[in-house]
Write a protein that binds this DNA or RNA. Structure first.
Lengths: 191, 191
DNA sequence: CTGATCATTGATCCGGTGATCAATATAAGG
DNA sequence: CCTTATATTGATCACCGGATCAATGATCAG
């Protein structure tokens, strides 16, 4: 018994990477201590040594997922353009990311809909909330001076993106960001 | 052993009702043969006698769910109004149904994201496809004579409704159909 | 009434899962 | 080199879920 030792951080990362991989390819239910351990080339007991419980492992996995999926809020360098162009650019970035990361987004939804414990849902809700908030300021700028509400526009835009992600998950090959973007032009203020 | 006898159909319905109830209130994972049997007041073996396997039970449950959730495509009597009014009416009906049936919709998503077998996904995809198709004709009418594409509009509208359902699931009390409907006015052709 | 068919029961088997733990190997400090 | 703290192993436990099945109860045709 016993075996080669690795620094805490590195081992945890390796375990998480294995769990992530399994979750992506075979679904959340396939993430069991034994399978993760086998995939990571370690013994099952070690998973609990580092993460206490399976819930602990899933919590950590969810954190990784949220960090890598819902943080593209930080606009790129092109931050100072006209409000509408900025909004359109943000939506475009998000939609194009979907085509690439749809598997991660799918996993996120799997977390949300199959692990209903508050522990998980609360974190996801907070992230969703932050996601919405990232769109509010620019939407308010866009609707300034019109009769429309910036908050409503933000809610609509986010609903659109989330609905689009379901499409991207269902049928990635037929998913086309341009179709949504062109329809979205209708939101542009006429002025 | 042995017990009161019931006609096949009735027993199956009772089992399905129990399964549905458990799934709605405690999630899909809580739907086990034993729990369903207890809830239905019968013996565990009977579940398999009537549904062969757990997959069989879940298939039947999914059918019930799809029938009750994604079939509101049949427009009400107010079928012959102007295209835009018709589209707006359809969206309104769907959004208002969300507020009432969000638990069923949540269950539908749970099916989709946690049971990844083709057996389940294919049926859901077909239903989603039909759902989209129900919006295509009216969207084409709406965009006729404009530069916009009816199919793109339909895809956008469906994405919007599905995104809205996620909102309705996350936070039913803060879900307000009117916000989306008013923003959607932007899609109305100017003409 | 009788026998055949169907519905029902509940005990039981088997596999997989989360979790625990004593034993052991490794690394670091004096 | 010895000691101490920390990783790591792999066997093992208890539990639960799907599935099976012999035994038994109900129902009905003849």
């Amino acid at each position: 018994m016993g075996g080669p030792k690795l620094p805490e951080q590195e081992r945890c990362d390796a375990i998480l990477a294995a769990a992530y991989q399994i979750a992506l390819t075979e679904g959340l239910d396939a993430v069991t201590a034994r399978r993760v351990a086998t995939a990571a080339g370690i013994s099952p007991g070690l998973v609990f040594f580092h993460f206490q419980s399976k819930d602990g492992l899933l919590q950590a996995l969810l954190d990784v997922l949220l960090d890598g999926t819902l943080d593209a809020l930080t606009d790129p360098d092109l931050a100072k353009r006209a409000p509408w162009d900025r909004l359109e650019g943000m939506v475009r970035v998000e939609l194009e990311r979907l085509a690439e990361y749809h598997a991660s987004v799918e996993l996120l939804f799997a977390f949300y809909f199959s692990r209903r414990e508050d522990l998980f849902r609360d974190r996801i809700e907070v992230s969703f909330g932050r996601y919405l908030e990232a769109f509010v300021p620019v939407c308010r700028e866009v609707t300034a001076g019109t009769a429309r509400s910036g908050d409503d526009l933000a809610a609509t835009v986010v609903a659109l993106i989330q609905g689009a992600s379901i499409h991207a998950i269902r049928n990635p090959s037929s998913f086309n960001p341009e179709a949504l973007l062109s329809t979205m032009q209708a939101f542009r203020p006429l002025r």
